[in-house]
Each structure stands twice: as C-alpha cells, then as structure tokens.
Design a protein around this nucleic acid. Structure first.
Length: 354
DNA sequence: AATTCGTGGCG
DNA sequence: TCGCCAAGAAT
C-alpha cells in the first residue's frame, strides 16, 4: 500500500511529470484540458485502445484518423458493412480485432443504447475487450480508478521494484504492485502517465534513467539492473512454411479473390486463393488452381514473417476468360479492387506482379 | 496454461 | 539479417 511506501508520493510525482510531458495523440485529452473539464469521447478511446493492442502509436495514428473520419460514432461503425471495416483495417494486423470491433459496436448499439458503458464489468463482457482494454476505457474514458497493466506498466513495475521473476509468471505480482500505486484522483491521467513513462523514458533498451521522475525510488536503477528487466521466458524458434497463391485476372480486368473464413489466420480478410501453408519436409499439397488456366510462376518469391512462422510464398499468375466460373473465390471488378484492402502478405504477392 | 493471432521499425 | 518489441484477447 502507499502508506508503506518510503519514497514519497509516487503517483503525484508521476502526474506532475505528465502535466509537463504528456504526449499529444488524436484521441487524447491533454491534462490541462482534462483539468478544465473536457472529457474524452469513449468511442475514440475504445477504438484507439483496440488499435493499440500490440501495435505502435506511430502505426495507429493514420488508421485511427481514417476510421473516425469514415465512422464518427459507434452507431456509424455498427452500421458499416463487414467488408468495408476489414478493408479499412487491412495492414494493421491481428484481424480478429477488427471482427470483434464490429461485434462490439453492434452489441453497444443493441444492448447499451449506442454508448460504451461506464462499467468495468460490462465492458469486460464485450467482444475484443479484455482485462487491459476494460481497465483502459474505464480509467481513461470515465476516470474510474482501474489499473492498466500493459507491456509498459509491466516493465516500469518490474524495474521500480527490481522484480526478476520472468514474464508472464510475474504478471500477478506486477499487477498487485501497479494496483497499489493507482491513485483515486485522476486515475485516467495516471494510467496514461505510466504508459507514457514506459514509452518515452523507461524504454525496453537503454532506459533514460537520468531524467526519470521515479529515478530516486527505482530499485532497479539503484541496483543497476534496469536494462535487463523485465525478464522473459525464452521464445520458441519460428518454423518455415511454404505455400502458393494464384493471381488470376479476367480480360475485363476483374481479379479472382476470396474472403477467408472468419476463424484462423487472416480470418475475414480478402486474399488470393491458394494452397495451405505447411512446413517443408512432408508431401507438398498439389497446387489446385481456383480455375483452369495457363498458370505461370512469377520470378521471385514472397517472404513474410507472421507471429509464429516464416512463410515462403510462390506466386502464380494467369489471364482468365471472361466467362470463367471459379471453383473458389469470387471476382472483384477492376474499379472495386484496392490493393490496400489486402492484408500485407497478400499485398506483397500483388506487388510481385506489378 | 500455452498457443494462436500481423506488421513494421529498430539495433 | 534477424530477433526483439509495440496500449493483448480468445481459446
């Protein structure tokens, strides 16, 4: 608890640092404006938090601007076509987030009168909102005293208390430390302040301890262990998988594409028809093209790395007759085809052809 | 509880 | 070139 903290009022020290050094973001209300009574839009906070899951602020900015320009409210997003939302999300990764985003928007309209509930338990029940996002929306959007525990906070707590237990085993301990520090005044600003500290000062490599507002109480700095924390359990090596995709174009310019099933890798996204992606060594599945044609391999290969495997993709190309009846997929007419609707690996295959 | 799920930037 | 890392959730 804070009354056993020998180093003074840590939350207050951090809030005073945040008042000066808060990063500006399109969804964020700066601390001075917040103090003057301006409240953040819960829709924008929720949307930004979902986009920011495992994704950098720099990457999220443009996606956030496009989403909010196209769908300014939860109700607008709930009314959107699935394909439009998936296309707008293309390139951002972790596509289950986009599917759950739509489910969540529709649930908010159906069950919460079109407003994100100012209720931590109710937020947790919504699709795509887990422990972190529920706490982030509760604190940042509604200024409720919930504790966010993201990668930044884990790192800051591990260093502040010099905790050497590797992640993820250390999470309960780190959460308890973070909760003990969370103030009941300005919890929203405090949540953003800890994450800003982790993102700008208490960084993974070469932390800027000399200018850290918590440099005096930080045990890892005192012990010289800051740069090696938090410890993490080693990761497994990524296997290499191989596959083939088929880029077919009709004489009228239409492309043969398919919408991938909602479950699994790139679920719900537009992509080129192709084989399964499997590790070399076993029997390669016979490449079954989506339509009979004079398929020719393109020079070069697409190399792409997913979270848990490397992919080597062979790209086949063929012109198709205008009366082609594909065994798989559907044609997208030339004017409706935007490469930016494709997930990155599929766009790479298209780029190989251009 | 361990896996699955993207992508781009960085050293 | 390559592993690490980024405001995690779902199963």
């Amino acid at each position: 608890m804070r009354d056993t903290d020998p180093s003074g009022d840590l939350p207050l020290i951090l809030l005073e640092w945040y008042d000066v050094h808060a990063r500006a973001m399109p969804w964020r209300v700066p601390p001075a404006a917040r103090a003057a009574g301006v409240r953040p839009d819960p829709y924008r906070i929720w949307l930004s938090e979902v986009m920011l899951q495992q994704t950098t602020v720099a990457t999220v900015r443009d996606y956030f601007q496009r989403f909010t320009a196209r769908w300014p409210t939860v109700a607008d997003l709930a009314a959107a076509a699935d394909a439009d939302v998936m296309g707008e999300w293309a390139g951002l990764g972790y596509y289950a987030r986009a599917r759950n985003l739509l489910k969540c928007a529709r649930a908010v309209v159906a069950d919460h009168d079109g407003h994100l509930p100012a209720d931590h338990a109710a937020l947790l029940k919504l699709p795509g909102i887990g422990p972190y996002t529920a706490a982030a929306v509760s604190s940042i959007a509604f200024d409720l005293p919930f504790t966010v525990l993201d990668g930044n906070v884990e790192r800051v707590m591990a260093r502040l208390y010099d905790i050497h237990t590797p992640l993820p085993a250390a999470k309960p301990d780190l959460m308890a430390r973070a909760q003990a520090l969370t103030p009941t005044t300005r919890p929203g600003d405090y949540a953003q302040a800890v994450m800003d500290l982790g993102a700008t000062i208490c960084t993974p490599k070469s932390p800027a301890c000399g200018i850290c507002p918590w440099r005096d109480p930080c045990l890892a700095r005192r012990n010289g262990t800051a740069a090696e924390l938090p410890k993490k359990t080693p990761k497994k090596p990524k296997p290499i998988r191989h596959g083939t995709v088929y880029l077919g174009q009709r004489a009228d310019g239409a492309w043969l594409l398919e919408t991938r099933p909602d479950k699994g890798l790139l679920g719900g996204m537009l992509g080129w028809p192709g084989t399964d992606w499997i590790e070399a060594g076993g029997p390669r599945p016979a490449g079954t093209p989506p339509a009979p044609a004079d398929w020719q391999p393109l020079a070069g290969e697409v190399r792409h790395t997913f979270t848990h495997f490397h992919l080597m993709l062979t790209v086949m190309h063929a012109p198709l007759p205008n009366d082609t009846e594909p065994a798989r997929g559907h044609f997208v007419v030339r004017d409706d085809f935007r490469p930016s609707d494709l997930p990155t690996v599929m766009r790479k295959a298209y780029d190989l052809l251009r």
